[in-house]
Nucleic acid binder design. Structure first.
Lengths: 234, 234
DNA sequence: AAGCTCTACTTTGGATCCAAACATAATATC
DNA sequence: GATATTATGTTTGGATCCAAAGTAGAGCTT
């Protein structure tokens, strides 16, 4: 994929995510091409990719429309990630956690501990957490014995809000987010514990529950509605 | 997607599945275009679709290569389908099975009963089973409250052997396949039972186990190796 | 006036052309 | 003789052209 091709897909993803192209509305190739300053060719290619990612869908006989996502869809996407990461964790527990892998996971756990040790959250901590969280999840999914699970998760993550690193939602209320990250950290540690002991079912369930942290734990901690803002990165 | 565009994706899928383009080998646009008798444009579009489906992957900086699947990948893809269909079943059980839906599922169960009632299997029964099996699964997945799960399963099903309707593998040994379908039928009935009673966890686990029927039950029934032949349909 | 049909316009799909990037091979220089 | 640089060839990506299919609108007919 050339740089600009990748860029077209990425920019379109962003624009769609931001609601620039309204959900349910038809999206034309020429309009997008002019908007992005490229010819129709890379747009046509990008549309195929975005169709497979689930952000676009066929509009009748001709062309595409922006897919609309309900709150139920978002919840479902989070659950899908939960069961898939749960599957990865269970397989990992069943095949036995190698010392090297335990080491690797402990690194990210330790980084999490250090991050939270000072008792509060700073602005720049958000990125650090996002990174270590991503690596922790990636390590588990990537070690499940086949790239198939990771692929399924990657495709699912294209849906808005579904990705694991969309946890931190409000950098204005870092004190309240702190408690959420504490919970996430504890869950990470419990997962590692279960993995180390070969407790497949427990690891699976912990991982499943962990998926909900960006969604349902807000209510619990008084952080407002369950759905946050879209993550800034892409 | 135009007819011929769809046809290019479909034909390429078939050719890749049949091993015409060897796994791990680079696949060029011009070569495929000439092979299929079209210009490069539809091939380029198809490559993007197949990349997202996971059948092709980027080969370094330039072009694509046919992805190779190990036995572990196939097993994993089956497990992925299992957890996803399990998720759908659990959600369905938790939200309560509507009378209309129970009716719908009963139709396919009943058709399965009728198919197996005569005590043996005929050649033409294979298609009938394939159809009712597909409808049974589709109905459950499609009623899970969000198309997200179905999409994830659909994407997963593009991988060879992963689809639910790749159960019937040997139309030469119909007498042995009969026992397998009997088991599948029983599992269908148990799933419906669990769904009707709102037994979410049980429905989920039954559905998960059911996913293995095309893979692991062969050994059990003395049907030879766990992996069958690719399904003929597309 | 309503419905049907024909036409004109819009939009997408396929083919081709051109440019750019990567790879390979050959030649020149150290 | 080996290495580096250049030149050529191969392949992909982007733009444009043309054709086909769909849609909408207007005009004609009943």
């Amino acid at each position: 994929m050339s740089d600009s091709d990748k860029s077209v897909v990425s920019r379109l993803r962003k624009l769609i995510g931001e609601g620039f192209y309204p959900p349910g509305e038809r999206i034309g190739e020429v309009a997008v091409a002019e908007q992005l300053g490229v010819s129709r060719t890379p747009v046509r290619l990008a549309f195929r990719t975005l169709e497979q990612e689930g952000l676009l869908q066929r509009a009748g006989k001709r062309g595409f429309m922006v897919r609309e996502f309900t709150e139920a869809d978002v919840l479902c996407a989070v659950e899908v990630r939960g069961v898939l990461e749960g599957l990865a964790a269970r397989r990992l527990a069943e095949q036995g956690l190698s010392p090297a892998l335990a080491e690797e996971l402990t690194v990210w756990i330790q980084k999490g501990r250090e991050l939270l040790a000072k008792g509060y959250l700073e602005e720049r901590d958000v990125d650090v957490w996002s990174e270590l969280n991503r690596r922790f999840h990636e390590t588990i999914v990537g070690s499940a014995g086949s790239p198939v699970i990771g692929d399924a998760i990657a495709r699912n993550n294209h849906l808005p809000f579904a990705a694991a690193d969309s946890i931190v939602i409000d950098s204005e209320a870092l004190d309240r987010e702190y408690r959420k990250l504490q919970l996430a950290q504890t869950q990470h540690e419990l997962v590692l514990q279960a993995l180390s002991h070969g407790e497949g079912a427990r690891a699976e369930m912990l991982m499943r529950e962990h998926a909900f942290i960006g969604l349902r734990y807000g209510e619990l901690l008084g952080l407002g509605p369950g759905l946050g803002q879209p993550r800034a990165d892409d």
